[in-house]
């Protein structure tokens, strides 16, 4: 599985959305991406890529696209 597939899978698994709906997806755009769901997503990404987000990055990770930028900052090329 590629990094992008793993990244997408975290969203699909945690929020119950389809992969084709991920572009443009933002925090609170779906019911499952609330504050609790956000932490589940972060934990899933940390597990999948063996990284640890800084607190500020967790807070500012507010969309599918923004998350991609952060992943690159942690050395994960998508």
């Amino acid at each position: 599985m590629s990094n992008l597939e793993k990244y997408n899978q975290a969203f699909v698994d945690n929020f119950g959305v389809k992969e084709e709906d991920l572009p443009g997806l933002a925090y609170q755009a779906v019911d499952a991406w609330d504050s609790v769901g956000h932490m589940q997503l972060i934990a899933a990404l940390e597990d999948a890529f063996d990284i640890m987000f800084d607190t500020d990055d967790i807070i500012n990770f507010n969309s599918y696209e923004k998350g991609k930028e952060y992943m690159n900052n942690y050395g994960v090329e998508l």
Binding site: S35, V36, H38, M39, I42, A43, F53, I58, I59
Partner: peptide
């Protein structure tokens, strides 16, 4: 610290 949630507490509180 992840399972007791302290690892995420500040971010969680801030997001809320």
């Amino acid at each position: 610290s992840r399972k007791n949630f302290s690892r995420y507490f500040e971010a969680f509180a801030s997001v809320q």
